[in-house]
């Protein structure tokens, strides 16, 4: 296969970027999308040019590091997979493929197709955990959890934190990401003690990071490689309003308290 690539090139966060056109030649349909980029990068390197920088690591769809907005869709045209799981046979010979980084104010470009997603980490740090220290926990089987709850919590917990939801959302909203963690811990008995403070903390941090707000378009759900559902957002909203309007708990502030 021979392809034309239009790729966003940007030297660093402070530079302005532009689209640059490359030829990708002799591409095997068996290649993954990232392997196709590897080939292009090898040829760029041999010419002494700087290779295209993109985030990637596990290349099996679980680490959440790869991104890429391909022809108008995060992780490319296929459902429920990440870019590293996308194969070139999903494209046709001679096609022009436009590759852009995730676009969001909260995800500034680091270089080329790589963006800084540390906002996601900070949201998790604000409350995406159960406050238990190592040791001194009860036996794992002491609290039975209905299978349906455990399974649903698992579904929410499969989020890989790739940011496709933000990239797909017309408002660059992070609601699907935040709600997946809020839901997971909110459903499990272990997460109950901090349920009402957690949701407030995480939403406050989400707002601080400058993500847009949700208008329930469902684009995030459609593009999520792990098929996290909008139900999570709904659960989070419910918990948030309940916490804000009817509960005693406030935004929890754990900072500095530890010994």
């Amino acid at each position: 296969m021979n392809l034309t690539l239009k790729v966003w090139r940007q030297k660093d966060a402070n530079s302005t970027g532009k689209m640059v056109t490359y030829k990708a030649e002799n591409i095997s349909p068996d290649m993954s999308f990232l392997e196709m980029l590897d080939v292009v990068n090898e040829s760029l390197t041999l010419k002494g040019d700087e290779p295209i920088y993109f985030d990637h690591d596990c290349r099996e769809g679980i680490c959440g590091m790869c991104s890429l907005y391909i022809n108008g869709r995060p992780h490319g045209p296929k459902r429920a997979i990440t870019t590293c799981q996308l194969h070139m046979r999903s494209f046709h010979d001679g096609e022009t493929i436009t590759i852009e980084p995730w676009r969001a104010a909260s995800f500034p470009v680091i270089k080329d197709l790589t963006v800084d997603r540390s906002a996601f980490d900070r949201i998790q740090q604000a409350g995406g955990y159960v406050s238990v220290n190592t040791g001194g926990v009860p036996d794992a089987n002491i609290i039975p959890i209905p299978k349906v709850i455990a399974d649903e919590a698992f579904n929410s917990a499969t989020c890989i934190g790739c940011g496709a939801c933000v990239a797909a959302c017309k408002n660059a909203s992070a609601m699907l990401f935040v709600s997946a963690k809020v839901s997971q811990l909110g459903m499990l008995p272990q997460g109950q003690p901090e349920r009402w403070s957690r949701v407030q903390s995480m939403v406050a941090q989400m707002d601080e990071e400058g993500f847009g707000s949700c208008t329930n378009t469902g684009a995030c759900e459609a593009e999520c490689p792990k098929e996290i559902t909008l139900t999570n957002i709904s659960r989070m909203n419910n918990d948030f309003f309940s916490a804000k309007l009817f509960r005693e708990e406030k935004v929890h502030d754990h900072s500095g308290g530890g010994e």
Binding site: V132, G135, P146, A150, A153, Q184, G191
Partner: peptide, 15 residues
């Protein structure tokens, strides 16, 4: 430890 952290291990119908 993992269960206390909220790791959703697979469960039987009895919970």
């Amino acid at each position: 430890q993992c269960v206390a952290q909220g790791v959703p291990f697979a469960r039987e119908y009895g919970g």
